[in-house]
């Protein structure tokens, strides 16, 4: 039974989870009261997706010290893969039946993105240095080219009529699960191996870490989450186009990450949240948006390179509950 006392204990031992449930309930409630309209809800969903995108990029750039600048490319792979299944291949079975396709499609989108990440990462990460930057950026552009020339994938016109499978509940569950999984990764020996590579690759190697394999693993994992995000994103917008996934899109995630704090999950979350909401408040100055973003990025790098949040983590996010 859910007695007040039990609820109290539960909240005390899982403060973060309880808070998120409360937040979810609040947003749904406000939506029912018509205080929030569907546009607001869409914005909240984008925040959730952007958080996962940014945290997964942080896994590669912040925690492992690599420099991937084409994260939107993996998002595109995931989006087009899953849309191919839900919209093009199966003509979207209506109602709840559609979710039977959508969930596996999202997962497959993630796996496809992970596979491309693996293929890109294998020859590139072996080299170290700045090669990853050039290759990821070029790769993201090549993906767009491929989409643009292939007629079955909508070509330059894009694909419309995508069912709106993504909803608030799904985004909440997806974002919480993804961030939780990535948090666990960081707290495990894999995370420590990553940070060791970031801090001193030569010493990491001498501690018995297969640095190439670890880098490829992290890169693949990051690509997986980006692919899943792509699927959700496509089913929010209901219309995708190669230009949804430009270099600028990748840059936006880099900005969220580095302003928030690259070596911190909390930082990535803060960055993604603030910078998804912010432009909506200043719509009238939209041409100034990137000017302000880039200037902020430069200033943060010059005066606080560890980002707003820094290298810290918000305690409840990383506190470990010991099982006995």
């Amino acid at each position: 039974m859910l007695t007040p006392k039990r609820t109290q204990t539960f909240i005390r031992s899982y403060p973060l989870f309880s808070g998120l449930v409360l937040l979810y309930a609040l947003i749904s409630f406000l939506y029912h009261l018509d205080w929030l309209n569907s546009y607001h809800i869409q914005l909240v969903m984008l925040v959730g997706i952007n958080i996962v995108m940014t945290v997964s990029l942080g896994l590669i750039n912040g925690f492992t010290g690599q420099f991937s600048i084409g994260h939107a490319g993996f998002m595109a792979v995931g989006a087009y893969t899953s849309v191919g299944m839900t919209t093009l291949l199966l003509q979207s079975p209506g109602g709840h039946l559609g979710y039977l396709v959508f969930f596996p499609a999202t997962l497959i989108g993630g796996i496809f993105a992970a596979a491309t990440g693996f293929l890109i990462g294998l020859p590139t990460l072996r080299l170290g240095g700045d090669y990853l930057a050039i290759v990821t950026m070029a790769f993201a552009e090549v993906i767009r080219t491929i989409i643009r020339v292939s007629e079955p994938m909508g070509g330059p016109r894009g694909i419309g009529g995508i069912p709106d499978y993504t909803n608030l509940t799904i985004v909440f569950i997806f974002a919480i699960t993804s961030v939780w999984l990535m948090r666990n990764f960081i707290l495990s020996t894999y995370g420590r191996a990553s940070k060791a590579i970031r801090d001193n690759e030569i010493a990491a190697e001498i501690m018995g870490v297969n640095t190439t394999r670890q880098k490829v693993l992290v890169f693949t994992l990051g690509a997986f989450f980006a692919g899943c995000c792509g699927s959700l994103y496509a089913h929010v917008l209901q219309y995708i186009h190669p230009d949804n996934f430009t270099f600028m899109k990748s840059l936006e995630y880099l900005i969220y990450l580095y302003i928030g704090g690259s070596s911190s999950i909390s930082g990535a979350i803060v960055g993604a949240t603030i910078f998804t909401f912010l432009p909506e408040l200043f719509r009238r100055f939209s041409s100034w948006r990137m000017v302000i973003y880039s200037l902020t990025l430069i200033l943060v790098m010059l005066f606080r390179p560890e980002g707003i949040v820094g290298n810290r983590e918000w305690r409840p996010l990383v506190s470990r509950r010991r099982r006995t």
């Binding site: 600048i69 880099l254 880039s294 200037l295 990025l297 790098m301 010059l302």
Partner: peptide
């Protein structure tokens, strides 16, 4: 990495600043 990110920032700044009406 800090310098690299800054370089990206400078690039973005120049483009978008130049694009202002």
């Amino acid at each position: 990495l800090s310098a690299l990110i800054t370089a990206l920032g400078v690039s973005l700044f120049l483009e978008n600043f130049a694009a202002l009406p």
